[in-house]
């Protein structure tokens, strides 16, 4: 029982990621109509349209308009994740999260970080990648990130066949495992950056109770975006940064009940 409690959000997240992936897979393989398409565009029960708002934004930048269906789908997704808050997409939906979490896990097991200085990269790189991606879209006349997104390659690979896409996934894995900690999801991925912006004012947020904190720093150690936990041990407060993925790992590792999920604007901070 204890172990389930210790990994309660992890179990929920993996179930969410895997079941979504399976439903997409079944949409193609068995013709189930629960979810058809993939993370770029899809339909629920052949009716409700969903679209990746970042992809649609790139199509706009490339100088094209899309059908109202795709627009409505992008709006639905944007609204959902804007309300949910943080990068819920990244840690509850995105299939690449499974890969990079594994890389991070192995990184801890083999204590890669203890081997001295590692490479450094700004966490703002992702916002630059968004900007460059939109400019490249404008000049090349296509949605630029969609042409090389390893996230889409992995997701499409699971549904329609991988091709040489495994190479992209492997390189992301090795990059996160051996080069930079949380290198892809936490530094480069423009989709993550995009959802950071969207989820900036969302509802579900991590809150910290300073009074219970014993400064063990386990939460900082486990957090894939540790800059968002700047208040830990210093003051009571909510994680307000959109870069927090709402993965809930900090809550799970905290032995002092100092971290909790809360509702911004609604629940009290302490």
């Amino acid at each position: 029982m204890g172990i389930i409690r210790k990994y309660r959000f992890m179990i929920l997240r993996r179930s969410s990621q895997l079941s979504l992936m399976f439903l997409f897979f079944a949409g193609n393989a068995y013709g189930w109509s629960v979810l058809k398409g993939n993370l770029s565009s899809s339909r629920i029960m052949d009716e409700v349209p969903l679209s990746d708002p970042f992809a649609i934004l790139q199509i706009f930048a490339a100088g094209s308009i899309v059908s109202s269906e795709a627009l409505l789908g992008a709006l639905t997704i944007t609204t959902f994740f804007a309300i949910a808050g943080g990068r819920v997409f990244c840690s509850w939906v995105c299939p690449m999260n499974l890969v990079t979490d594994l890389a991070n896990r192995l990184r801890r097991t083999f204590r890669i970080d203890s081997a001295g200085k590692s490479w450094w990269m700004s966490r703002n790189t992702r916002y630059w990648v968004i900007g460059i991606g939109l400019i490249v879209s404008l000049f090349m006349g296509v949605a630029a990130f969609e042409w090389l997104s390893p996230v889409s390659m992995l997701h499409r690979g699971v549904i329609y066949g991988m091709g040489a896409g495994w190479a992209a996934v492997l390189s992301i894995f090795l990059f996160d495992f051996l080069v930079i900690k949380n290198g892809f999801c936490g530094h480069i991925c423009p989709l993550g950056g995009f959802y950071s912006i969207i989820g900036r004012f969302g509802l579900f947020r991590i809150r910290h109770h300073k009074g219970k904190c014993t400064l063990c720093m386990k939460c900082i150690e486990i957090c894939p975006e540790k800059q968002v936990l700047s208040m830990v041990g210093k003051k009571d407060g909510m994680v307000l940064s959109g870069e927090c993925t709402n993965c809930g790992r900090c809550i799970e590792v905290c032995d002092d009940n100092a971290m909790k999920f809360g509702m911004r604007y609604i629940s009290k901070i302490t």
Binding site: G27, G37, N38, S41, R43, V66, Y160, G163, A164, G165
Partner: peptide, 20 residues
């Protein structure tokens, strides 16, 4: 948008989605 819904819709499985 590379969603692959046309590929899924094809009753003859004639359409292929380009993979890397």
């Amino acid at each position: 948008t590379k969603c692959g819904m046309c590929v899924e819709a094809c009753p003859y499985d004639a359409l292929i989605l380009a993979s890397p």
